[in-house]
């Protein structure tokens, strides 16, 4: 009799554990897919604005308090300073920026993306174009209108 009770208790516990795992998976998967879908769209728009060399458009993809943490430069904060930063790189001939997502996550009003970036420096006066690339980390903040904008943009 005691054994039967133990088995019954164990069975209930196992069922509860399975239910918990299923609930977790059901909750976790759409979030992951949601973040991937949002980030995929944001990357495509960002890269497109870069190809167009439109610093004004790119700056609209950042939060009003957004920051860049450039490799080899001081941190840049705010829409105007960010527009000026990208404008300076376009003037130097940087183009063909491509973001390749490695991992995304969404927690509340924040999305993070770990990625790889690559870009091309146009060859001037017949010089060969140069390829650059590295690691990239982007943090996005949900805006009041439901859109997502970049809060921090760090690369190396």
């Amino acid at each position: 009799m005691k054994n039967c009770k133990s088995i019954a208790v164990l069975a209930v516990l196992v069922l509860a554990a399975i239910a918990a795992v299923m609930a977790y998976q059901c909750n976790a998967k759409p979030d992951k897919e949601k973040a991937d879908a949002i980030v995929s769209q944001l990357n495509a728009a960002w890269d497109e604005a870069f190809v167009q060399a439109s610093a004004g458009t790119i700056s609209t993809y950042y939060d009003a308090n957004g920051s860049l943490l450039p490799a080899g430069g001081e941190q840049v904060t705010g829409t105007k300073a960010i527009a000026d930063f990208w404008s300076g790189l376009f003037a130097k001939g940087l183009t063909d920026h491509h973001i390749e997502t490695v991992e995304t996550g969404i927690v509340g009003n924040t999305i993070y993306q770990r990625a790889k970036w690559s870009a091309v420096l146009k060859g001037v006066d017949g010089a060969e174009p140069q390829n650059f690339g590295g690691n990239l980390h982007l943090l996005y903040k949900k805006q009041d209108d439901g859109s997502w904008k970049i809060l921090t943009h760090t690369w190396n």
Binding site: L69, A71, G72, Y112, G134, H137, T152, T154, W155, N156
Partner: peptide, 24 residues
Amino acid sequence: SGNVHLLYRKQADGNWKLLSHIWN
């Protein structure tokens, strides 16, 4: 020297731990 960006996630025990660490 350079810039560093650290992302933290709150743990079940209330402590904050690093989730992403990038620098240049």
